[in-house]
Design a protein around this nucleic acid. Structure first.
Length: 511
RNA sequence: GCCCCGUUCGUCUAGGGGUCUAGGACGGCGCCCUUUCACGGCGUUAACACGGGUUCAAAUCCCGUACGGGGUACCA
């Protein structure tokens, strides 16, 4: 067991976005590759954005994907609690430590005052007001106020925040495992709030403290965090942890299919595809979504697809099981540029996995779908249907939807093709086929094929004038599995009855 | 605006100075298989953003420009 430790640290503000799932996946793969530990931490420091149910959703999603954490919220472990709202005192203590060593300071400017300041600055032509080493000299904080007044304000319970005191003129540099050296001039960085007036830490403080305390060795997160990593390094420095801080890797973003910006929850409806792993039910229709699972995706396919969205092993193999991904994964092979969400590729992966899946496994998975449609069939029968249909299905649901005629009577006939092909005068020939079916023994595909071919020869019938009509009689459509295979699955009784009924119906179209 | 990051076929990508007349996959197109639809097989389409360097040699290294993305909150 190596001491590699990584974390997935989502915020429970709603359903877990597919980009978040990929971040979790890469963390999981990296941990497994190195025999390390993958942990789940819930970053719920924003009380205002907390959404009930989101935490369970996150865990359910990881479970569905098969990438459950080894440690963390919902699992437990030596560094509990793993929910940041339950670690308030820890952050408070650490923030105070920074205040006392001069790396942070109290500030009393209210949100309203800051807004007003931004507006007045904007009116004066400065559109990028920052609370930084220059502007802090003119604000209400422990750097400008006399010590006794600061004490008084604190003592009387006035609202305050603690801000990071960013040095004026330094270069802060770190090595990103994906991007190489990245550096920032501290003069460009603002004095980030570390502790909010409600007593909660901001992400910036909490993630540094927790990553250190939880002995995280590698931070693998989205690119949206790259710009604030300068602050994070400054924080490690302020705590005296810079020499042992985690290695950073910033993942490229997943972009909209049209490439215009990062993929967002609204893109699902816009492009007719899922952007969440599982369904999410909110109060409004607009905020409720179906997930990959509800669309009929297999989790293995989603994982394979996601793994390849921004990563590539450098070989020409495209299909990878989770275990193979763990073996092949490396951070160095992650690409730097953002990757568009390629839904066609996702569907292709699903089709590949569907095709390769065992009939019985598929049967178990579509059973709820079949039952929901009111179909009452045995597991064995379901497996036979899967065997017939899986080669031409993209989604799990296709196995049920496209095979409706295997579960019940034909719902609609392809009348156009019937009219084109059916000749009432050959009804006797088709009746002869039905009679043939009644006696064919054994009732299997090779035997049926042989007998039908013999009969066609005897009566000088061409396959083209027989097979399409048999197909339509059994399935109603010109599409589907082999005619003889369908007959076997339907069984002798249903086949014969269905044929006779259909031929009578055909007569009514072409009298 | 400012800061950070990025830029190879339509898309995901391989490529880490010569083996690149740039490889694979998805998509598209065509053919074969099959008197269904798919699967499958074969073939085809199509890219190193631009401009300067460095070098005997650059898709690969450096600089600039353009374009794209991200960040710029008492959100994460």
């Amino acid at each position: 067991m190596s001491n590699i430790r990584v974390r997935f640290a989502p915020s429970p503000t709603g359903p877990l976005h597919i980009g978040g799932v990929r971040t979790a996946l890469y963390n999981y793969l990296f941990a497994k590759k190195h025999g390390g530990t993958f942990l789940l931490r819930i970053e719920d420091t924003d009380q205002g954005r907390y959404v009930p149910g989101a935490e369970d959703y996150i865990i359910e999603s990881l479970k569905w994907c098969g990438i459950l954490p080894d440690e963390g919220q919902g699992i437990g472990g030596p560094f509990a609690p793993y929910r940041q709202s339950e670690r308030k005192e820890i952050y408070q203590k650490h923030a105070l430590e920074l205040v006392s060593n001069g790396s942070a300071y109290y500030a009393f400017d209210t949100p309203d005052e800051l807004d007003a300041k931004r507006q007045s600055e904007a009116a004066a032509g400065n559109h990028n007001f920052k609370y930084d080493h220059i502007s802090r000299r003119a604000m209400k904080n422990a750097l400008t106020l006399p010590a006794h007044e600061v004490q008084h304000r604190l003592a009387t319970g006035e609202d305050y925040v603690i801000r990071l005191k960013v040095p004026e003129n330094e270069t802060v540099m770190f090595t990103d495992l994906i991007r190489g050296e990245v550096s920032f001039q501290t003069g460009e960085l603002d004095d980030k709030v570390l502790m909010k007036s409600d007593g909660m830490p901001t992400y910036h403080l909490a993630n540094i403290v927790d990553d250190h305390l939880m002995k995280i060795t590698h931070v693998i997160r989205g690119e949206e965090w790259l710009p604030s990593t300068g602050h994070h390094v400054l924080l490690y420095r302020a705590f005296g942890w810079e020499a042992i801080m985690p290695k950073f890797s910033h993942l490229p973003l997943i972009l909209k299919p049209d490439g215009k910006g990062k993929l967002s929850k609204r893109d699902g409806a816009k492009f007719g595809m899922p952007v969440f792993p599982l369904a999410w039910k909110a109060e409004s229709e607009e905020d409720s979504f179906d997930g990959f699972r509800e669309f009929g995706f297999l989790p293995q396919a989603v994982i394979n697809f996601l793994a390849f969205l921004g990563w590539n092993p450098g070989t020409e193999q495209e299909i990878f099981s989770l275990a193979e991904l763990c073996e092949a994964f490396s951070l160095e092979k992650i690409s730097k540029g953002g990757a568009r969400f390629d839904y066609d590729k996702a569907k292709w992966y699903n089709q590949q996995y569907l095709h390769a899946a065992a009939d019985s496994d598929l049967a178990a998975q579509i059973k709820p779908l079949a039952e929901a449609k009111g179909y009452q069939v045995s597991d064995e029968y379901l497996a036979k249907v899967c065997h017939l249909m899986k080669g031409r299905a993209t989604f799990l649901s296709d196995l049920v939807v496209q095979a409706s005629y295997l579960f019940g009577d034909v719902q609609s006939f392809d009348n156009e093709n019937i009219v084109k092909r059916w000749k009432p005068e050959s009804h006797p020939n088709f009746e002869a086929l039905a009679v043939l079916m009644e006696s064919t023994e054994p009732f299997d595909a090779p035997t049926l094929e042989e007998r039908v071919k013999n009969l066609m020869t005897e009566r000088s019938l061409k396959p083209g004038e027989v097979m399409p009509l048999l197909r339509i009689a059994l399935a109603g459509t010109m599409q589907g599995p082999g005619v003889y295979e369908m007959m076997v699955v339907l069984g002798r009784q249903r086949t014969v009855a269905r044929l006779r009924r259909a031929f009578d119906y055909f007569d009514t179209l072409n009298p």
